[in-house]
Structures are given as C-alpha cells and as structure tokens.
Amino acid sequence: MSVGPAAEPAAPTTWQRFRQHRMALVGTVVLGLLLTVVLLGPLIWSVPIDTIDFRARLALPSAAHPLGTDDLGQDLLARLLYGGRVSLAVGLCAMLVAVVIGTLIGAIAGMSRGPLDAFLMWVTDLFLALPTLPLLLLIIYLFRDALTGLVGPEVGVFVLIIAVVGGLRWMPVARLVRAQFLTIREREFVEAARALGASRLRQVVQHILPNALGPVIVVGTISVAEAIIAESTLSFLGLGFPPDTPTWGRILFDAKDFLSIAPHWALFPGLAIFLTVLSINFIGDGLRDALDPRKVR
C-alpha cells in the first residue's frame, strides 16, 4: 500500500523554521546590533561618561555630542553605550533566573502531586501576595554591604539586582509550567513513554518539558522588559546601582523632569529600551514557533 509523504526533503530543522519567521529574524538582527554597539561602541566613541561641562548643558544633538547632553553636560551617547551593557545584562540575566527558578518549581510541583505540589503552590501564592517594594528594601539593606564587601561594589550590586528582580518574577513562570505539566503528563505519548519504562527524569526532559516550553518562552521574553524597567525603578529609589552609573532606566528617570526642554534626553534611552524589548519579543515568538515542528509555513 502507498504510505507516507513520498520522497520529499527531510523535515526542516529548528533553525530553518526560525529563519522563515521574518519578524524574528529582524528582531535577531536588531538585538545583535544593539549588543554589538553596546559592547564595541565605547571602544570607538571614547568620550568619558562623567565629564561635566556646563557650557554644553542640555545641548541638542550635534557633531560634538551626537545624542546631545544631559543637565550636567555629560555626553549622552557615551552614557547610553555604557548603560546599555548594564541594562541588557541585567534584563537577560534576571530573565534567566526567573525562568530557571520558575521552571524548576513548576516542574517539581506538576510532577509531584499531593502535599509537595500544594506546598510549592502555597509558596508561589505567598510570593505573589508579598508587597514587592518593602521586600526589596529589606533584602537590599540586609545583603548589600555583605555582598559588595565580598565581590566589589559593581559586581555585588549587579548580582543582588539580578537575584532580587529574577527572584521576584519566577511565580508566573512556575504557575504556567505547573499547569502545562498537569495537562501534558496525562497525554498518551507520556503514558507511552511510561509504558516503555522511561524514568521520570526522561519523561520530563524528553517529553513533557519540550511540549511545555512554548508559553514559557513568551513569558520569559516579556520578563526581560520587566527586568530592565525594574532595575531602573530600583536605581531611581537609590537601591540599585550608584547614581553615577548610567543605566537606560536611570537615564530615562533623570530625563523625566526635563521632558519639555530637552526631549532628546528621554527619547534615546526610551528608544533603546523599546527596541530591545520589541526585538526580544519577536525572537521569543520565532523561537516558540521554531521549536514546534508542527508549524510549517
């Protein structure tokens, strides 16, 4: 009997499927450009980030200052390039922390059933109900000095912020992963794996997790944006990086009082955050589709 899709080329690989997602490709290019500029830019544009020049206060973009200056006459391009390193690193690392913790807790809860599941979900609800800001204050007051003493002020604050931002954003991921696990673990292909003698770890890694990951990726990309914003909130409250360390969020907050006189000051960091978040979201969309072999365009 005739069987099968006849001799066509083999199924497209993940990368081939990703390439067909045009917006994801654009997002990858934009994010790649941002990363390159932020990493290599300071080598080329070697203006110091903290040279105060009151003669050029709130200057509009010009040859000397391509993106203008702030209220202290500091060069915005230099500050944006430097701040981009911090903001992007914080956003990506905090997202990773949130996704890893959330996936672990959600997976354990979804697989265990019974008291452990109930306990983990109780912890998740507890974290969701906690008022974030007072908790942040507490954690930072408690650990900032110890950590900065251990690894230096910059790295210490960086680690602390990632831990705090990521550590308070894993709950939606955990709930999502648990819900996915609860449905997928009852699907017949998981039962088939069980019938074949697959260990629990194999069932999770090989069968359940890959099928649960789509929505997690989307939530993960959104949390990158949240993390960048959260970092700026912390900096604004004086709990994040010291005020003389520019980050995108920090620059944006500093600019808000001068919005009517010097809109360029807020425009460029805002644009940078916007582009980053947008391109990461598109990449997330593309990844989700690319990881699903059923999606054929």
Binding site: R187, E188, Q206, P210, D292
Partner: peptide, 8 residues
Amino acid sequence: ASLNPRMT
C-alpha cells in the same frame, strides 16, 4: 495524542 509532536 500518542506520539510526541516534537520528536522525529
């Protein structure tokens, strides 16, 4: 439902 959609 009985075949993992993400495996060849």
